[in-house]
């Protein structure tokens, strides 16, 4: 029955991995334009999800309203993080931005705990139907929704980056911020829009995760930051495709490790893989080596 277990685990892993992929896309977008790490990304998502949950608990808001609140909340908090941690610093003060975002992580998490003090809170469930059976394999309907949403958002993000004027501006800023400014792109505005966009994508990811579990715990902020970071690093920085590959790989790997070795080893496997990849193959799966090289040049000039 090992083959069946393997197949079932892989399937489950792909589904969970799709949420990691969404988180990684958001991280990658922010890292791409800012070249700085936003540690407050997970807590931003947490803030949105907590606002949605609060509306659900106290007002009995229907699920679509909750989704809207989550996205809006995450975007607004994302804007706050951008204003306080990224806008005031030049690219030179990378560490300062990162530490400031960590400071806001602490702040947002404590504020969220004041909003909903309990460790675990109910969240509206996505689909309450019985799992589908495909031959001997089981498939949860809400997991399918999650996968579909991921593919949809990834497609939309790719379209936005490749085909629209804003996407062109974003890519220009990612490639050469100074040159982008010279040709008349409002770099600060592009950065802000990307930041808000990434926060909104994170909000959707947080919503899907909470809705699949039908609950949300105080760990979601930390969870989203670490999973998103690992998935992004596995895929290599700065590419949407890499983020998806990294997220799915992480999901599958964790599912197998959990099944065969237990939940503690599961987490260790993800970190272990990341460590080995970084130490011996720092470009990641689909690493944007070119991006790295331009960054090195940018630092020197």
């Amino acid at each position: 029955m090992v083959a069946l277990d393997l197949a079932q685990n892989t399937l489950d892993g792909l589904m969970v991995g799709s949420s990691y992929a969404l988180l990684a896309i958001g991280f990658t977008l922010i890292f791409g334009v800012m070249r700085r790490l936003n540690l407050a990304y997970g807590p931003t998502i947490m803030a949105g999800v907590y606002l949605g949950t609060a509306a659900f608990i106290s007002l009995g808001a229907p699920i679509l309203v909750v989704l809207a609140i989550v996205i809006l909340g995450a975007s607004l908090v994302g804007l706050y993080v951008e204003r306080l941690c990224f806008r005031p610093f030049g690219e030179g003060a990378r560490t300062a931005s990162m530490v400031a975002s960590f400071a806001l992580w602490m702040q947002i998490e404590e504020a969220a705990m004041h909003l909903l003090p309990r460790h675990m809170n109910p969240f509206p469930a996505l689909v309450a139907s019985a799992p589908l059976e495909i031959g001997p394999l089981m498939l949860r309907a809400d997991h399918l929704v999650m996968l579909a949403a991921t593919l949809l958002i990834a497609g939309a993000a790719t379209y936005l980056l490749a085909r629209t004027k804003l996407g062109l501006a974003i890519r220009a800023v990612i490639d050469q911020p100074r040159a982008a400014a010279i040709v008349g792109i409002d770099v600060e505005r592009v950065m802000m829009l990307t930041f808000v966009l990434a926060s909104a994508i994170g909000g959707i990811a947080g919503f899907l995760i909470a809705a699949t579990d039908a609950q949300v715990t105080a760990m979601i902020g930390m969870w989203a930051t670490t999973k998103g970071l690992v998935a992004m690093m596995l895929g290599g920085l700065g590419s949407v495709k890499g983020a998806i590959a990294g997220g799915l790989l992480l999901g599958v790997l964790e599912a197998h490790a959990q099944w065969f070795l237990g939940p503690q080893v599961r987490d260790m496997v993800a970190w272990g893989l990341l460590f080995v990849l970084l130490a011996f193959w720092p470009g990641g799966l689909m690493g944007a080596k070119a991006l790295d090289r331009t960054m090195a040049v940018g630092r020197r000039v």
Binding site: L84, P88, F89, A100, M106, E110, H114
Partner: peptide, 21 residues
């Protein structure tokens, strides 16, 4: 008490704007 991280977080963020090192 209960608001330590809100104060500390804001303080650090603002402090780093004024003095990045």
């Amino acid at each position: 008490r209960g608001y330590r991280m809100i104060v500390f977080g804001g303080l650090v963020a603002v402090l780093l704007i004024v003095r990045p090192r």
